[in-house]
Amino acid sequence: MSKEREQGMSLIVKTITRLTVGLILLYGIYIVTHGHVSPGGGFAGGVIIALAFVHLLLAFGKDTAFKVLSESMMSILESTGALLFLLIALIGFVGGHFFMNVLPKGHPFNLFSAGIILPCNIAICLKVGAGLFAIAVALVLLKLAVEKEEK
């Protein structure tokens, strides 16, 4: 506990963060998976998921945040998102051309409809979320390094 208190913000912020971070993550997943039937999509949902981890990073310090999502995991997730998106686009060649919607369309207004749009949203969410969290982590930790040098 004493070690945990050294990093991050005060106890009030940490308690509230424990309550809210799961809800933010859940909201982000909802926004991503319902991107084709309601407002939202891969971009907004990916940024919300990245914000959940940034929230954790700011409140608890870098050790706790890296325990949840390590740096190597981040790069794996971002590469997975980019390759998945490209793969879905290449599968379109089965039907004729790049980015063709070859999967069954399903019934409109259902969650599992709209062919390639749902997997594409998930791929973009992985890419945007991991990329923006990597940017935020890099800038926050660079700031600490600069301060150390100035002292």
Partner: peptide, 28 residues
Amino acid sequence: ETGATNIVASILLDYRGYDTLGEATVLF
């Protein structure tokens, strides 16, 4: 044509998927 009821999503990922692919490249 796409089965998506959110027309913005259908434009973003079906009609104009190349834009999104380029965006992903720029972000990377």
